[in-house]
Design a protein around this nucleic acid. Structure first.
Lengths: 365, 365
DNA sequence: TTGAAAGCGCTAACAG
DNA sequence: CTGTTAGCGCTTTCAA
C-alpha cells in the first residue's frame, strides 16, 4: 500500500529530461533511441527514466510517426476453432515483427463488418486482415484499398477487389472429395452450409461466399464428369443454428430419395449433423457417409473417425500476416509466396458405400 | 481507378473547418459532438465533412482525452476453444459499450505476459483483462494495479493481488467430481495437467496455477472424507504436448497399480488421453473411466459421450468485461455480481465402475 | 455560441 | 552531439 494507488499523472520525457539535466529532445532521442546521443547523456537519461518509472506513450509516438504498430483483424467468429487457429497464426507472426493485433468479431454480419473496418481505420491501424462476410458486397473494402491502407483477405475472396487473398482452392478439393464419394457409389450427395441466401439455390447462382460457390461448383463438376447431374434438392443453404441443422439433416435422411452422403461445410455443422444421425438411430458409414471441412483433433475420436478436408488454417493466418506486414513495410515480396496453401482429403472412417449401391448405379445418369 | 490509390494526406478538422467557413474549434465541436454548436454551424460542418470524406483520428482524440476506448486482453492460447469462447464473451460485451479489444497471446509464458502487459499499458488501453500464466509471480500485475489502470483477472486468481477475479470455484467441483468417481468404486484416480512445476508434486505444494492447486485440493478432500488418501503417484503435472500426454497415459494404465479413472485438466489433454486409451485397445468406461474439464460440443459425439465438468466460459468473459468497464467508467457495482459462475458435472457415458471394484474396495483405507 | 490559443506527449526539422 | 522550435490532429480553456 506504499505507492499511491490512484491514477497519478504519467511521467513524460519532459520530466525525465529535467531529472537528467538535458534538453527534452536529447531525452527523447535517448529514450526512443533514434538520432545521435552521446554515451554520457544516454546513460543519465536512461537512469533518470528508470528512476522515475518512465513509460513511453505509444499513442503520442504513433501520432507523429504515423505508425501504430498495430494491425486490425476482422473475423466472423473467434469462437469457431477455424478462426481461433487462423488468429493464432496471425498473432504469432505479428508479434515476431513487433505488431499487435486488434481483433473484431462480426458474427458474419455485414453491417458489423463495415463498422469494424471503419473503427480500425479511425484507430489508424497500419493494415487490415479481413475474412469478408460477403464476397459480393465489398464497397467498404474498396474504400480501405482507396484510402491506401494495406489490406489482405483471409479465407474468402472479394469480387472485383484486387488484393492478396489467402485461402485454399476450394473448387479443386471439393471436386476431388465429391469424386471420392461418387466412386464409392454415392449419387445422392448432400451439401449443408450456413451461408445465407435470398432464395433457394439454383446452379451457378451468385452466393455471398466465394468459398461456398467454389465448393458447389466443384461438386457440380465432379458429377458432370461422370455424366451425372448434381442432385440439387440436396443442397441445403441457410442452415442456421444447431437445431435448424439437425432438422435439415433429418429431412435429408428421410424418404425413398434420402441422401446417402453428406458434406458438412464446417466443423460446427458436422457436429449437429452427426448428432442428428446418431439420434435417428442410423450409423456412419453404413447408413450415411460423411465428409466435413476442417480437420479438428476430435474428428479422430468419434466412432468412426471422420473423413475430413484439412485446410492449413494456421499457415493461412501466418501467410496473411506475413504478406500484410510486407506491404506495410513497403517491401517487395521476397520469397515467391510461401507454402502453397493446399487443402487435402484425409480419409478416415466416415465414408463407405451406400447400401443399395447397385440400384443407384443403374439409376445414375 | 478514379481515386488516387496511394496514401494521400488525411483530411483533418482544419480542412473541414475551412470548407465550412467556421473556426477549427467549432468544427471540432460539431464533429466530436461536444460543447455548444448552433444548428446552422453543425449542419454546414457535417456537410463539409461528408463531402471531404473526413474521418476522425482516434489516436489524436485519445491523446487529449486520455481515453482510448480500448481494452487489452491477455490470454494463454486463443487457439484453445476455452479462450476462444471466453474472448467472444469479452468482445461481445466490449462492443456493446463501445470498446475495442487488443488481444495478446502469451503461450502461457510468463515473460511474454510481462511484455504483453507492458505493451498494453504503453498503448494506453483503458483497462486490462488477463488470464495470468502464473498465480504466484504477479509483480507485473501489481504494477498495473499501482499504475491505477483498471484490471480484472480471468480464469485464475493471483496470490496477494486484490482484484476482481472471474473464475469458477474449482475446489468444490473437483471435490464433487472425485466423490462421484469414488462412489462408483474408483480408488486409483489419476489427474493429468500441463501445468509446469519444478519438481514432482507433493501435497499442498504451491503451484503456478491457482486453478490446479484448487482442483488437487478438491480431490484430496474427497479422498480424505472417505478415510482414504489420494494416490499421489497418479498426479501427473508437466504433461506437455500431445505425444507427452499419450506417453503419460500409457504409463498410467500399465501394471498392477494402474489407474482406473483419469481426470483430464482440459479438452486438449483429454483428446490425447482418449487417443492413447483407444490405441491401447482399452475401452471407456469398462476399462478406464474419464472426466474432462470443459464441455465442448464434440464430447457428445465420442463413444461413449464424455462425462465433463462444464464451466460457463462465455459468461466468465462477459462478466469480466462488464466488471472492467464498470471500473473504467468509475461506476459502483450496480447489480450484485451477475450470475454466480458455477461449474457443474455433466454425467454422460465415460464413467463406470472399475472391473475389480470388490478387490479395490477392500484394499481401500 | 463562437474563436483564438494553449496544450496532450512525442518526433522531426533546423541551426549551432 | 545538442538544444530550440515546430508541428501531429484533436480537445479544452478562456475571453469575447
Amino acid at each position: 500500500m506504499s505507492s499511491e494507488g490512484s491514477r497519478r499523472r504519467d511521467v513524460t520525457v519532459a520530466d525525465v529530461a529535467k531529472a537528467a539535466q538535458v534538453s527534452k529532445a536529447q531525452a527523447a532521442r535517448a529514450l526512443g533511441n533514434y538520432g545521435a546521443v552521446s554515451e554520457d547523456v544516454r546513460e543519465r537519461v536512461l537512469a533518470a527514466a528508470e528512476g522515475l518509472g518512465y513509460r513511453p506513450n505509444e499513442l503520442a509516438r504513433s501520432m507523429n510517426t504515423g505508425k501504430s504498430n498495430t494491425i486490425g483483424v476482422v473475423v466472423g467468429d473467434i469462437e469457431n476453432p477455424h478462426f481461433g487457429l487462423a488468429t493464432r497464426g496471425i498473432t504469432d507472426t505479428a508479434k515476431k515483427s513487433g505488431y499487435n493485433v486488434i481483433l473484431i468479431n462480426t458474427d458474419e454480419e455485414r453491417a458489423a463488418e463495415v463498422d469494424a473496418v471503419q473503427v480500425l481505420l479511425d484507430k489508424r491501424v497500419d493494415g487490415l486482415i479481413v475474412a469478408p462476410a460477403s464476397s459480393v458486397e465489398t464497397a467498404h473494402l474498396k474504400e480501405v484499398r482507396d484510402s491506401g491502407r494495406p489490406l489482405v483477405l483471409l479465407d474468402r475472396a472479394a469480387e472485383g477487389l484486387d488484393v492478396e487473398t489467402f485461402a485454399v482452392d476450394m473448387g479443386t478439393i471439393s471436386y476431388e472429395s465429391t469424386k471420392y464419394l461418387i466412386e464409392a457409389g454415392h449419387r445422392r450427395i448432400a451439401f449443408v452450409s450456413t451461408v445465407r441466401t435470398d432464395g433457394p439455390y439454383v446452379a451457378g447462382m451468385s452466393l455471398d461466399s466465394s468459398q461456398i460457390s467454389d465448393r458447389l461448383e466443384g461438386i457440380r463438376r465432379a458429377f458432370e464428369e461422370e455424366g451425372l447431374s448434381q442432385p440439387m434438392d440436396l443442397v441445403r443453404l441457410n442452415a442456421g443454428d444447431a437445431d435448424s441443422i439437425m432438422r435439415i439433416t433429418r429431412d435429408l435422411l428421410k424418404g425413398p430419395d434420402a441422401a446417402t452422403a453428406i458434406i458438412a461445410s464446417d466443423g460446427l455443422i458436422a457436429l449437429s449433423v452427426v448428432e442428428a444421425i446418431q439420434e435417428s438411430g442410423l450409423s456412419i458409414p453404413s447408413d450415411v457417409s460423411l465428409i466435413m471441412y476442417d480437420d479438428f483433433a476430435w474428428t479422430r475420436l468419434t466412432t468412426p473417425p471422420l473423413t475430413v478436408i484439412a485446410q492449413p488454417v494456421y499457415d493461412m493466418g501466418m501467410a496473411a500476416a506475413t504478406a500484410l506486414i510486407r506491404q506495410i513495410e513497403g517491401r517487395k515480396s521476397s520469397s515467391p509466396a510461401g507454402p502453397p496453401l493446399e487443402a487435402r482429403l484425409v480419409r478416415r472412417g466416415s465414408v463407405g458405400s451406400p447400401k443399395d449401391v447397385g440400384v443407384l448405379s443403374q439409376a445414375g445418369s
